[in-house]
């Protein structure tokens, strides 16, 4: 950087076109933007912790409840709705138990490399459907059949394939019973994340009332 002042004595560029000015610009712009990003990151972090007050990312025990997805006029987008108790597999879990189950599901989804066919929250590959609202998909028929059908499918997706005319079948990931339960819990929890209205216009499968009634 010693040569910065080399041709100061000749008719060098104006200050606003000088090497020195732009070096400072580069440093300050980068530092400034990085600072803003760090501040936003800190704030976002506190907001998206599972179970944080914002409600954007629900606590893991949300899997004890019925979950809906409906249009919110104030926010002009679809948002998840947490309904009354409807425990997954009929068994109400504590927050710690629920977290452990969802965690097992997420580990399984990573370990079986699901993201290189499916998308999660819209990120991943485009060979298979998005899983953001898989729990709510009308393809499961209705609320009563859902857990049974999901388990059946995940245990043997080749035999139970429904390819809707594409011939694209899901290979058998050979999940253990516990992994299947984990994956379903993970999908149920995922469907309750507030994703700013993505996907829009989604139709939820037929299920019971979302009114919490006198419960809370």
């Amino acid at each position: 950087m010693a040569e910065a002042s080399q041709d100061e004595d000749t008719s060098g560029p104006e200050w606003w076109a000088s090497e020195d000015f732009w070096r400072k610009c580069a440093i300050f712009v980068t530092a400034g933007m990085a600072f803003v990003l760090v501040v936003l990151t800190y704030h976002t972090h506190t907001v998206i912790l599972a179970g944080a007050e914002s409600g954007r990312v629900p606590a893991y025990s949300v899997i004890n409840h019925r979950i809906g997805y409906a249009f919110d006029d104030d926010r002009n987008m679809m948002v998840p709705v947490i309904g009354p108790l409807a425990p997954l597999f009929g068994e109400e879990l504590s927050e710690d138990e629920a977290r452990a189950l969802v965690d097992h599901g997420k580990l399984t989804v990573q370990a079986r490399n699901c993201m290189n066919c499916h998308t999660l929250l819209g990120n991943g590959a485009y060979y298979a459907p998005d899983l953001t609202k898989a729990w709510l998909d009308p393809g499961w028929g209705n609320e009563e059949a859902r857990e049974f059908l999901m388990t059946l499918f995940l245990k043997d997706p080749v035999a139970n394939a429904r390819t809707y005319g594409t011939n694209r079948r899901m290979p058998n990931p050979e999940l253990t019973d516990e992994e299947v339960r984990g994956v379903i819990a993970y999908l149920k929890w995922m469907s309750a994340i507030d994703t700013n209205g993505f996907p829009s216009g989604f139709t939820v499968l037929p299920q019971g009332s979302l009114s919490r009634g006198t419960e809370s």
Binding site: D7, T10, P13, E14, A17
Partner: peptide, 13 residues
Amino acid sequence: RLSEQVHEGDSKE
């Protein structure tokens, strides 16, 4: 304008 200014004195070099 930046191009013109930065290249000021370029021909000499």
